[in-house]
Amino acid sequence: MIHLKNLSKKYQGTTVLEIPELKIQKGSCFGLIGNNGAGKTTLFSLLLDLIQPSTGSVTNKDIHVAKSEAWKNHTTAYIDESFLIGYLTPEEYFDFIASLRQLSEQSLSESLEAFQVFFNDEVLEQKKYIRDLSKGNQKKVGIIASLLGDPELVILDEPFANLDPSSQIQLKRIIQEQAQKKGKTFLISSHDLSHVTEICDRIVLLEKGSPIQDIQTSPSTLKELERYFGA
């Protein structure tokens, strides 16, 4: 589904990302891990055409992301708060996203209904602007918005950070369900090794901008990763 070729990003001579080649298959849950500065967010920004690569290219379903915008039809993301519109209420925000993805009012409310438990009565019908919600609830709004309209590819940066334990567990369930039943492809970065090994079937470990391990998840993966990060 995604094909990175010869991709690199340099800032004033320092290389922050360098990936000779990486292919991500459709229907997989792909995990990206690495310490701060490993290049996870840079990679996501390149995938979303928010920054330009120094060399190489990104194709998303054979669409060159910098040359055509057609990939936006099947791709969504939640990277950080700059994906939220602070002065809207969550309902208005979902409404906005739904109209961009040509989702009817009916199917929007059905979709949101399915996430009631995840929202835990703290998001909808609060008469609050998103900027006044807690960090955790803001994140819930962003993540759920990225699932609206059944995109084929969902990119989430640190989805578990800031969520309370119950929400983290629910989110894992939501991602697994969406990946298995609806065939969505997820790209997830996280610092939480146990969550990533639990939900992702493939994990790539970035170090200083380069992929140094490409792992098919197995029961021993968590131990291996802990050894790597502990050393």
Partner: peptide, 12 residues
């Protein structure tokens, strides 16, 4: 500007 990334990744 506060949500420009959102706009740039949507079908707008």
């Amino acid at each position: 500007s506060a949500y420009f990334k959102l706009l740039m990744t949507q079908r707008i």
